[in-house]
Write a protein that binds this DNA or RNA. Structure first.
Length: 467
DNA sequence: CTAGGGTTAG
């Protein structure tokens, strides 16, 4: 018998099950699932049996922190306990399956719940729509949306938000705005979240002017912009290189008390570092730390990047160490930032060793980091080696191609550059204007007019095919 | 179940 258990676990009553669920919920939230399981075992031993809420809490935690299969196996435990799964059980499982990109399983679970006579609710429909959008299936998402309307379930604001966000995610931004206007005409009162979604996508697609108009509308409708609105607008400024304006937004964000987390700070720090305003970036870092803002993985990556940009590699590595001490694992961003930092200070060997070590420790290949290495090799004049790394790459993206094309053009190797440009087009990837121009003008300047025109024609054809 | 932050080329 566990004598350390609080006394309320000893009485089997409605109160004790409620308290049990509160304990399980708080343990699950802090990723202590093992402890939660121990408490459940003890509770059962004391005759305090968990109910469906207990199991649903476990399902949510297992999908979030362990695996879908672990969560799914709770279903049999529910049956063994003589309980019946409910709509929340299935909603959590569907959300869990979507987290692991198991699209067929989402549909299966949906069918299964209907067969069991469990009626889907608006959460079920919202989750399914979200799943389909995230997996690039707008038509299926739209079908769910129609079913929702056709059935007895009333869509809510979140349903509309998922629809608008999903349409934008698929690139249908104008359609999303039209959908939004249509809803408004039918009496829909959008919330700040809805406006934030539109503002975010308008900025991301380069329609900053329209984004500012939507922001104005948000305020005219009596809404107050929140912390997310501010970070979104800031990002919008930095995207269009309006650093001053972005900084002004940050100041206003601070004055409104919206810099309570690291989001705003990370946005402004990265933007400053990117344009070389390292001193200013460091002022913001100091302020963030002085204000006692909790640092997460993204914050650390931001700080590591600033130090790398300064050439302070030892400090950067110290921060990686601190990260580990906080129990946070570094990710692909961390690795890329470090590889880039090493290349920047000319330590190509170090960068290569780091990449090799990543491979050996089973970290999956990181294209961005490889791109940094190739760029570093070009800068260090190790041309043949850069070519070799490039050829051995099993995957390439537009950065890879751009780095190679610019490198070759700098060496006046315009024919190989044209070759790589062509293979890039064959892969269906877009070519950055500057790289395209470097090859064409290079060929022309060295007297190969015909080749230049030929290449230009190929580029234009490729552009047509993409549309 | 929806909305914000971090890496590489020019």
């Amino acid at each position: 018998m566990n004598s350390k258990l609080p006394t309320y676990f000893h009485n089997s009553s409605k109160l004790s099950i409620k308290l049990l669920n509160i304990s399980i919920s708080s343990l699950c939230k802090t990723q202590q699932i093992d402890k939660a399981e121990v408490i459940i075992i003890d509770a059962i031993r004391l005759g305090n049996f968990p109910n469906i809420v207990t199991y649903n809490t476990l399902i949510a935690a297992y999908t979030r922190f362990v695996s879908f299969d672990a969560a799914y196996s709770i279903l049999s435990r529910i049956k063994e306990a003589g309980l019946t799964p409910n709509v929340v059980t299935y909603n959590s499982l569907i959300a869990g399956a979507s987290r692991y990109s198991r699209l067929p399983q989402c549909s299966e679970l949906f069918q299964q719940m209907i067969q069991l006579g469990i009626y889907p609710d608006v959460w079920t429909y919202n989750t399914l729509m979200h799943v389909f959008f995230v997996n690039g299936r707008p038509h299926e998402a739209n079908k769910i949306f129609s079913d929702c309307f056709g059935g007895n379930i009333l869509p809510c604001t979140i349903t509309f938000n998922i629809m608008i966000n999903g349409l934008c995610r698929m690139g249908y931004i104008s359609n999303a705005v039209r959908f939004f206007r249509n809803l408004q005409e039918n009496g829909f009162k959008p919330k700040v979240e809805t406006y934030n979604i539109l503002i975010h996508w308008l900025c991301k697609s380069g329609r900053g002017g329209k984004a500012w108009k939507i922001l104005k509308e948000l305020e005219e409708m009596g809404h107050v912009p929140n912390a997310i609105t501010y970070t979104t607008m800031m990002k919008c400024c930095f995207r269009s290189k309006k650093i001053e304006k972005g900084f002004e937004v940050f100041m206003e964000m601070k004055s409104k008390g919206y810099t309570f987390d690291s989001y705003g700070y990370c946005t402004v720090i990265s933007a400053l570092a990117k344009v070389g305003l390292i001193k200013e970036a460091n002022v913001c870092i100091e302020e963030m730390i002085r204000n006692g803002i909790g640092l997460d993985l993204v914050s650390y990556n931001t700080l590591i990047n600033v130090n790398c940009k300064e050439g302070k590699l030892e400090t950067a590595l110290q921060l990686v160490d601190d990260l580990g001490k906080c129990g946070i694992e570094s990710d692909q961003y961390t690795h890329t930032i470090l590889v880039n930092g090493m290349c920047k200070v000319g330590d190509i060997d170090g960068a290569e060793r780091y990449l090799k070590r990543m491979e050996m420790t089973g970290v999956k290949s990181n294209l961005a980091a490889c791109n940094c290495l190739i760029f570093g090799l070009w800068k260090a004049g190790q041309i043949e080696y850069a070519m070799k790394v490039f050829e051995n790459l099993e995957q390439k993206d537009e950065f890879t191609y751009t780095v190679m094309i610019h490198g070759l053009c700098k060496q006046k190797m315009f024919f190989p550059a044209a070759g790589i440009l062509r293979s890039c087009l064959m892969e269906g990837m877009k070519v950055v204007r500057s790289a395209k121009w470097a090859v064409i003008s290079g060929l022309r300047a060295s007297g190969y007019r015909r080749e230049a025109d030929n290449l230009l024609a190929t580029i234009q054809t490729a552009n047509c095919l993409r549309c």
